[in-house]
């Protein structure tokens, strides 16, 4: 390849890196900018660097509460999915039973169901169960909506576990559950790690369910909080930027720390 082609390709790579990173950089700058500094242009370096925006949204606008609510809901959804999807994925990957194809097709169909398409009935059902304005009312449907993806991904992961090891464990007369926990789970650990990360990510990003289910201010999640801050204080740009950063910082840190797990998980659930 000649030098010109290579250099112009490097430029293309750099332009797209700028496209990916510039908006994030811009929010970072805005979140550390004082109000007086606001009109020096969006790209000027903030000076003096302010932490006031973070302190204000964290303490006064309720973001400490929103943050813990999001954490609580996302952890609960993740635990719920981890307790259910690997078992189901294993059943589809390694066990023989009547109706296997039909049940698997039922799960596959759910892979693409958007939350807005079931909200009309779901909302009434949650009302009837007394789950409107409770965290459980967000956790259960969210775990359910993530179930097809999780089961599909776990089935792919479990197919890799060698049959001989499973047979060896059942020959000892152990129950299927005991064999699953002692033999299969340790072998499937990287896959389970990916599932954990992705379910946590999706759950933290969720907007529609917490938006319609939660009404009390102190129960709301960080995505709902950030969106309503935008409407409420139309001019507090520093505050909104700080809120946005608080809302995605945990995800970015998780992603950068475990990039491999993330990417493997997303592509495993996607293609095969």
């Amino acid at each position: 390849m000649n030098r010109f082609t290579r250099h112009s390709q490097t430029v293309v790579l750099a332009v797209f890196a700028l496209y990916a990173l510039a908006p994030v950089y811009l929010v970072l700058l805005a979140s550390m900018r004082s109000e007086a500094d606001l009109f020096n242009g969006p790209l000027s370096l903030p000076w003096p660097i302010e932490t006031a925006n973070y302190l204000r949204v964290w303490t006064e606008s309720g973001f400490s509460t929103f943050f813990w609510n999001s954490l609580k809901i996302s952890v609960a959804v993740t635990v719920l999915v981890l307790l259910t999807a690997p078992l189901a994925g294993y059943a589809f990957a390694k066990m023989q039973f009547r109706g296997r194809e039909a049940l698997f097709a039922l799960f596959l169909a759910g892979l693409v169901v958007p939350a807005p398409s079931v909200i009309v009935a779901l909302y009434g059902n949650l009302q009837a169960l007394g789950l409107i304005d409770t965290h459980i009312g967000v956790i259960l449907p969210q775990a359910a909506l993530l179930m097809p993806f999780s089961v599909f991904m776990m089935r792919t992961v479990m197919q890799e576990v060698p049959d001989e090891l499973i047979e060896a464990s059942t020959m000892d007369g152990a129950s299927p559950l005991y064999g699953f926990l002692t033999v299969v789970v340790p072998l499937a650990r990287p896959g389970l790690m990916s599932l954990t990360l992705i379910v946590f990510l999706f759950s933290w990003q969720e907007y529609l369910l917490p938006l319609v289910v939660l009404q009390t201010e102190t129960l709301k999640t960080i995505t709902v909080g950030a969106a309503s801050l935008q409407g409420r204080y139309g001019v507090d740009y520093g505050g909104i930027a700080a809120a946005g950063l608080i809302a995605f910082a945990p995800l970015v840190v998780l992603f950068l720390a475990m990039q491999r797990s993330f990417v493997r998980g997303l592509s495993a659930g996607a293609v095969k």
Binding site: L83, L87, A88, Q96, P141, A143
Partner: peptide, 25 residues
């Protein structure tokens, strides 16, 4: 039987909060 027991928790959750609302809608 063991397979159904393995499937049951995921199926209950998915059935109650996704399949049922689809049928209702």
């Amino acid at each position: 039987r063991p397979a159904y027991l393995f499937l049951l928790p995921a199926l209950l959750l998915y059935g109650a909060f996704v399949v049922l609302p689809i049928l209702q809608v």
